[in-house]
Each structure stands twice: as structure tokens, then as C-alpha cells.
Amino acid sequence: MRQRKFTHKILWIATLMIYLYLLTKLILFKGGSVDFEIVRVQFMAFLHQPDLIHTRTVNLTPFQEISRDWNSLSLHRPGTAIHLVGNVLAFIPMGVFIPVLMGYKWLSGANVFLLSLLLSLGYEVTQLLTGMGIFDVDDLMLNTLGGLIGYIMFTMVIGMKQLLVGGESRVAKKNYNAKESHV
């Protein structure tokens, strides 16, 4: 049983690594081939010329891009919907990986919030420092929301499983003792 649990955890970790690779490919390399040498070269260029930070496009105004994308949603501009929905969908798996790998503790939701935010912040700061994208506070919010939606969906599935399959109830139950008189 212990070996099975260990194997199960290793599979989850391997799946998490694949997910993070694909997420990095999507966010930093815009779906192209992953080449961390490019990231290193871009970062070293920034270190040699820190004034490059002023040439980067940055959005620090919450809801600016979200409202712009929302207002321009149409069938003729599918990129806006992809930006809105894609940022949320990309982080939904985080809402599953975190509670599974960290255990189903009552603070799992807070862990999902914090780790989704930190992972998204890591990508956004990397984009800022390397110029491989745009630092956008709205992306932070949408990515974190995606992690929380994934967590809510995960807890709903676990709850439905416990209802359908059964499991320990959190309600205290009184054990029946046949030797006691019952009136």
C-alpha cells in the first residue's frame, strides 16, 4: 500500500513538471520552442543595461486590460477572448496539483491562492526582466483566479465522490449498542 501511494505521488509530480514545462512554453515562448538560453541572454542584457527596464511595456492598473478585452469581445477578434479565458484556464490545473501534492488540508485554498499568485508573478517578472512579454497585473489576477477555480472544481469533485462512493462523514454518529435498552 505504501509503495502504491509513493508511485501515485511520483506520477503527480511528473505530471506537474510536464504542466509547468507546457505553461512556460506558452507564457514565455508563446508556444514556440523552449530555449532557456534565450532567457539567460535576455536577462544578462538587462543586467548589463538596467535602464532597459524603462523600455518595457507594463500594465500596473488593475482591470485595464480585462475591461479593454471585455469591451472588445466579438467574433471578429477572437484574440481578446483567448487572452481573458486563456489566462484563467492555464492556471486551473494548479488548483488540483497543490491540494493533491500538499495534502487535503483545510488551508489548501489559501495555499492555492498564494502559490498560483507567486507562480504567475514569477512569469510576469521574468517577462519584465527579459522583455519576452508584458508585465500585466491583470494576468496576475486572471491566473490566480484560474488556480482558485481549479481548487473549487477539485473540492466539488471530491465532495461528489464522497457523496456517491461514501466516505467518512464529518457528522458525529452514535454507535448502536444492542445491549442497551432502547425506548
Rank of each mutant, 00 (worst) to 15 (best):
N111V: 07
G79W: 10
Q162A: 00
P62R: 00
F6R: 12
L128H: 08
I18N: 03
K5I: 03
N143Y: 07
G166Q: 00
G32T: 09
L140E: 04
G159V: 04
T15E: 02
T130M: 04
Q64Y: 15
T57A: 07
L148M: 15
L114K: 05
L142M: 09
K161Q: 02
V157T: 05
L129E: 10
M102I: 01
I82F: 08
P93Q: 01
T61F: 06
R68C: 00
A81C: 08
W70Q: 02
G95E: 10
V171A: 02
Q3K: 12
D136P: 12
R77E: 15
V137K: 04
G131A: 03
W12T: 10
I53N: 01
L107I: 14
R77I: 13
M44C: 05
L16G: 11
Y176N: 01
G122F: 12
V34G: 11
D51N: 10
M17P: 09
F29V: 07
G79P: 07
A110Q: 11
N87A: 01
K174N: 01
R56T: 03
V58W: 03
L75T: 10
V41D: 15
D69P: 06
P99H: 02
S120Y: 09
L52Y: 07
G103D: 04
K179E: 14
N177W: 03
L107A: 08
F43L: 10
L129N: 11
V85T: 08
A81R: 08
L114P: 09
W106A: 02
L118A: 08
V100A: 03
R4Y: 05
H76R: 15
E37H: 13
A81T: 11
E180S: 12
G131M: 05
V137S: 05
L84E: 02
S74L: 09
M160Y: 07
H83V: 11
M102E: 01
L117Y: 13
Q49D: 10
A172V: 06
A172C: 00
M156C: 15
Q64P: 00
Y19I: 07
R77G: 06
L164I: 07
F46I: 01
A172H: 09
A14S: 14
H182F: 10
Q127F: 10
I98G: 08
K5G: 00
R68H: 13
L101E: 05
G86S: 04
F29L: 04
M132D: 08
H54P: 00
S108N: 13
